[in-house]
């Protein structure tokens, strides 16, 4: 320690250099990240618009030859909407009830801990493995046909952990005072959950579900293994191969001619639009219904 401390010392050049150097690196990292990501969006939009027309949205690929222009993704859009809707029908009730169990009924026992652990594990299940499971169980062992329903089951495996986690988080945010107030009025536990807890957490749960839907709507691998391919419109998800938008993009992208590539871009654009709308809706719900509009 020096006896006389000088006036306000300038900080050393090395420290200033490091500070500015890191700042430069951070800006550079951001620039590096933005370039490819913007390029992806730009190419999808600019190339996708070429075929993003009424014919594309209302026609299937039936009777479209390998090198023909024209054709559309109507069958794939129908397929994706049906498969995602069915997947939600399976995973939302199961996921919600599981979350209710974890938050409201599960005492700190072994069952609760193992369910919680396996929800985490399930989050990490690769989508192709979920597809393989339905393939092995539903199609190979039970001998069922490829169908939209099989795809929906595979997607619901991917949706379940997301729904459980987000619903669990929202239920835990419901203040305990509310539950106790309800119990104090002599309301039974299950009615408290249904009438007080779930409505309070409702918007949060809806947001979580929509984000989960947006995530699985873009999954390709499980569909490839369970829904298979078709070029025709099949409106019945329980019978015979269907198509899905991600599958459509994959299929068209692998075809070595420009008209197919154009269709692939248009399909990618359609898919992104659907997913962005879901995301946007989820965000708007959170924004409008958030109690304090904190941010």
């Amino acid at each position: 320690m020096s006896a006389v401390t000088p006036e306000i010392q300038r900080i050393s050049g090395m420290r200033r250099f490091k500070d500015k150097g890191v700042q430069a690196l951070v800006y550079l990292a951001f620039a590096i990240a933005v370039v490819p990501l913007v390029s992806v969006l730009w190419l999808v939009i600019s190339n996708g618009l070429a075929r993003f027309d009424m014919e594309f949205l209302t026609h299937s690929m039936r009777n479209i030859g390998a090198r023909d222009a024209g054709g559309g993704a109507y069958h794939a859009i129908i397929g994706t909407l049906e498969q995602v809707a069915l997947a939600s029908l399976i995973s939302v009730p199961i996921g919600l009830l599981t979350a209710v169990y974890l938050v409201e009924y599960g005492t700190n026992g072994r069952l609760k801990r193992s369910i919680s652990f396996f929800v985490d594990i399930m989050t990490g299940v690769p989508s192709v493995v979920a597809g393989l499971f339905i393939l092995a169980f539903w199609i190979l062992i039970l001998g069922m046909p490829f169908s939209g329903w099989a795809g929906a089951m595979a997607l619901s495996i991917l949706m379940l952990p997301t729904v459980v986690r987000s619903a669990e988080e929202m239920l835990m945010l419901v203040p305990n005072d509310l539950r106790e107030a309800s119990y104090a009025l002599g309301v039974s536990k299950w009615r408290t959950i249904v009438k007080v807890v779930l409505p309070t957490a409702f918007t949060g749960i809806v947001t979580g579900v929509m984000l989960a839907i947006a995530r699985v709507a873009g999954e390709t691998a499980p569909l490839l293994l369970t829904v298979f391919f078709t070029d025709s419109i099949n409106e019945d998800p329980f019978n015979g191969p269907q198509m899905g938008l991600p599958l459509y993009v994959f299929d068209q992208a692998a075809r070595p001619n420009d008209t197919a590539i154009d269709r692939a871009w248009a399909g990618a654009l359609t898919l992104i639009v659907i997913i962005m709308l879901l995301n946007l809706a989820a965000r708007l719900i959170t924004y409008w219904r958030s109690p304090a509009r904190k941010r």
Binding site: G106, L111, K112, I115, I121, M122, V125, L140
Partner: peptide
Amino acid sequence: GDGPFRYASTGAGILLLVIMAAIAVFLIAR
């Protein structure tokens, strides 16, 4: 209603465990 609701939610949780086990079992079986 309390009974059925409790069983349903516990059952959903258990179903989740069953699915995880089934994934391993059926993959191994095939």
